[in-house]
Amino acid sequence: MPANFEELVRTHAADLFRYAFWLARDSQQAEDVVQEALLRGWRAFPRLRETAAARAWLFSIVRNEFHRARGTAAPAAESLDGLELADERSELIGLELRDALLALPAAYAEPLALQVLGGFSCGEIARMIGVTEGATMTRLTRARQMLKRLVEPRARKGAKP
């Protein structure tokens, strides 16, 4: 369990960046959001009593910071230019899914990122984004349905000789 803030950042910063990226759909904006969020987190850290909840706490700060910054920031450029895939093995299917994820409305992409990247349960996600657990499950279901719908025709097309 992280004993200091720097250790906490080293443990979670990569996933916080990825989460911020799927909120902002822009690498530079994601970096700015995480930096500001961690500054706020650093100031608040001495009063964090339950370090077990630190991951959810940091994700919530990133979310708040993104929505706060969005009020003044330029609209996110939904571009993956220059952004590399983390895992080359999943390159082909990953590229298809990335395109599909970028086409996914934010209301669906965010709970999906919290579930898959953050590892949070439907109940935790519901509380973080301020909707009911049932609505969260519906969004997650629809998100996957949309992704499959977007990816499968391309996959079928690609499979033709």
Binding site: F5, E6, V9, R10, A13, A14, F17, R18, F21, W22, S27, E31, V34, Q35, L38, L39, G41, W42, R43, L83, E84, L85, A86, D87, R89, S90, I93, G94, L97, R98, L101, L112, A113, V116, L117, R144, L147
Partner: peptide
């Protein structure tokens, strides 16, 4: 595949910059 697609690559040196930035 979904997990892989969401795992966008983190900019080089990002974690180190963030650990020191605050």
């Amino acid at each position: 595949a979904l997990r892989g697609a969401l795992q966008v690559a983190v900019p080089e040196g990002f974690v180190e910059r963030m650990a020191r930035a605050p």
